[in-house]
Simulated scan of single mutants.
Amino acid sequence: MSKDSNLAVLIDADNVQPAIVDGLLVEIAKYGTASVKRIYGDWTGPALKGWKEALLQHSIQPVQQFGYTRGKNATDSALIIDAMDLLYTGNFGGFCLVSSDSDFTRLASRIRESGLTVYGFGERKTPAPLVVACDKFIYTEVLTEGNEEEQQSRKRSAKELKSDTRLVNALRNAVEGSSDEDGWAQLGPVGSNIAKQSPEFDARNFGYRKLRDLVEATGLFEVQERSAADGASKVIYVRDKRRP
């Protein structure tokens, strides 16, 4: 297996709830193979006892870290040291940092400086510096969403989407930046373009499963489905309706 598909998953137990684990690992599988799965915390205390079943079920290795001094987070230091050790092995194509703690901002930047991809996972309260330090940041709230009916209730309407200036500008700029002379852009590059500007962008944050669903819901773009060169698959193209 290519090292580019190998991911090191490092979880800060002090900042993550066990309920996200199933959705977390399903999401990570979209980007590669979780070759290393470690979670850091003080397992001698009662605060983390809810993790036991999840760790056994998913073969996540707990790393014990005592809190040496009150008010100081030794867990962060242990995770950072392990991350650097793993980075120097050269066996990984990316890291998944699971925490809402901004203390990992410099770690994320350092890993990217070495040419590896960083996927961040944290709650919506995660400070912006950590979010933008990652190549892609996924809010953990979207990993624990309920059934289809509940998801439908969270969908933003066309009116709400159109009134979101930041969203509209991001979509239009991405389409323009990826388009041909006629204004048509493949949806894949559009998504990549947006992610480079806003690592936290995700259609699920607006209640839609896929980018195509979100784009169509805005009512601001034409959408076409065309046959790919191989004739066996389809490619989605979008164009700003304002384009003459």
Rank of each mutant, 00 (worst) to 15 (best):
M1G: 09
K3G: 10
A13H: 00
P18A: 06
D22T: 14
G23M: 08
I28W: 01
K30P: 00
K30N: 03
K30E: 01
S35L: 10
K37M: 01
Y40S: 02
D42I: 11
P46M: 00
L48R: 11
K49E: 05
G50K: 14
W51T: 01
W51H: 02
E53G: 13
L55H: 03
H58C: 09
H58W: 08
I60W: 07
N73W: 00
N73L: 01
T75K: 12
T75E: 14
A78G: 10
A83K: 15
D85R: 12
L87V: 08
Y88T: 10
T89V: 12
F92D: 07
G94I: 11
S99Y: 01
S99C: 02
D103I: 04
T105K: 06
S109R: 03
R112E: 15
G115K: 13
G115D: 15
L116N: 13
E123Q: 01
P129F: 02
V132P: 01
A133Y: 05
Y139I: 03
T144Q: 09
E148R: 07
E150K: 10
R154F: 03
R156S: 11
D164S: 05
T165Q: 09
N169M: 06
R172S: 12
N173R: 09
V175D: 12
G177A: 15
E181G: 12
G183P: 08
L187I: 15
L187D: 12
G188D: 06
P189F: 09
P189W: 07
N193C: 15
A195G: 05
K196P: 13
Q197W: 05
S198W: 01
E200V: 13
K210G: 06
L214E: 15
V215H: 04
L220C: 08
E222L: 11
V223F: 04
G231S: 03
S233P: 00
Y237I: 07
R242Y: 07
P244W: 00
